[in-house]
Amino acid sequence: MAETVRVAVLYGFGINCDHETKAVFEMAGAEADRIHVNELVNGDKTLADYHIMAVPGGFSFGDHLGSGRLLGNRLRFGIRDMVQDFVKAGKLVIGICNGFQVLVKMGLLPGDEDVSLTQTASLTLNNTGHYEDRWVHLEFDPNSPCVWTKGLERIRVPVRHGEGKFVTSIEANLDEWAENGQLVVRYIDPSDTYPSASDDLLPFPICPNASMRNIAGVCDPTGRVFGLMPHPEANHSTWLGATWTREMPEHGEGEGMQIFHNAVKFAKEHL
């Protein structure tokens, strides 16, 4: 039982969303520190002091050689043991957008029981060939073991990426991940009745990047490591929604916040 949930929000080398990611964890009641990747590599700080690691969005190393590849390598080769120990200890990890790309490229997602850090999926260029910022509708798998997404049905958040197409080279992998509830969040058409998540590719821009099976995010087999391309932290308050001026909402927390509340609550109760 953690009295204070501590979150390590990584930054450096072109991670851009570190401030807002720190902010949403604080709004959710945690204590969050921005930690430069090199502070972990050179041993000044350790993940062991934290309950949650967040790899925020951004453009680490300019997305050159494939988004997330170079930062993923810095973690995979620089602090391999520290990351494996952290995950094996049952602690929580989230990667958002570029952070998700990092976790996939370093093999932490969709991942395996042994935390072997073997890459089994990838995120590649959107079919449009370019970066886009647009709002999407997401739907969550109610049967997923993911601790981050408990109780969530649908939310609206922006995607902001050029390489968000989730792919794998082995079809059977997708079936296995689906079976395990690891395909935790997908793009959906809001005019379809809940639940509507489907394996059939939805047209652009409903599925903004032509991801296989409309996948927006996945978790590891334990449900404690989670990553997604869209930005839940960008909808932390109602006044940040895409169409809030049409809806005249009761102002307060935005639709993205539940994800961070879930994690902090879980950490408080279990870590």
Partner: peptide, 22 residues
């Protein structure tokens, strides 16, 4: 304009596009 990130920093209240279809 969609190819620019107009929402990083999570502060965007009135965006470049609005309306029911954005």
């Amino acid at each position: 304009v969609r190819q620019y990130d107009h929402e990083v920093i999570a502060q965007s209240v009135i965006k470049p596009f609005c309306g029911v279809n954005h």
